[in-house]
Amino acid sequence: MLEALQYDFMRNALAAGLLAALACGVVGVYVVVKRIVFISGGIAHTSFGGIGLGYFLGINPIIGALFFSVGSGLAIGGITRRTRLPEDTTIGILWAMGMALGVVLIALTPGYAPDLMSYLFGNILTVPSSDLMLMLVLDLVILGTVVAFYKEYLVLSFDEEYARAVGIPVERLYLLLLALIALTVVVLIRVVGMILVIALLTFPAAMARQFTHRMRTMMLLSVTFGAVFTMGGLWLSYLLRLPSGATIVLLAGVALTLTLALKRLRSSG
């Protein structure tokens, strides 16, 4: 592994893994405790429409994904809070429409769509430096927002009715949270791909929850686990010549399953 570090692409891969861990570790805690895993899945899949648009317009597909994921996050939040359409129906509609739009736009794009697979399933080894910069900026935005509204988000995710009663702008902060999830999706797309994003948004946080009942500690642990999974997965995929995104997800999944099983054994025995 160490000799691999002399390569630029390997250093970029490490940086991408750490930047991804930071975003998914922090935002994943909200996804898990607020039980909005399915919403996050919807946001991630809708972003495929943006990737298609990127190919179609000849711009960086990540930029297309950025607009589509933020748009779908705000749409899911806005529609479910202002209409009578059930939340899961809304998510289902956006999820499928986003994917379908992406497929159609890619079909309309002349020629072959290069590295389409890396957007779907991630390829941490091919993250260009320009995307690293974007990931860094998004990380800063996400962290800054969470630090600024940490106490409001704690109240809001604990009990929305109470948050409203003490005058916290619940609606706006919730939409902002969905936008943060959308940004996190964009940070993660290059690493594990849009289909597997949901894994990094839930596994590290769910595992962290097994070791603490304080939210701040949970975020720190979750970021740490996220980093261990991306680094470990990268190393395993390098060693075994496996696709990196899927290896990272499987490693995280095994770790989470083992943690839950051990905890169960300990509490029953």
């Binding site: 805690v29 405790v33 039980r35 600024a148 509204f149 106490k151 409001e152 704690l154 109240v155 995710s157 604990f158 009990d159 929305e160 009715e161 109470y162 948050a163 009663a165 003490v166 005058g167 916290i168 929850r209 603490t212 009942h213 304080r214 939210m215 949970m218």
Partner: peptide, 29 residues
């Protein structure tokens, strides 16, 4: 409230929940 809606596994201590009472008074940021 009558029955606060929260997940019983929510990661907050009694202390965290009590401090939430200061949130509205304190103001944002």
């Amino acid at each position: 409230s009558q029955r606060p809606f929260f997940n019983s596994d929510f990661p907050a201590s009694v202390w965290d929940v009590t401090l939430m009472g200061r949130c509205g008074v304190k103001g944002m940021l």
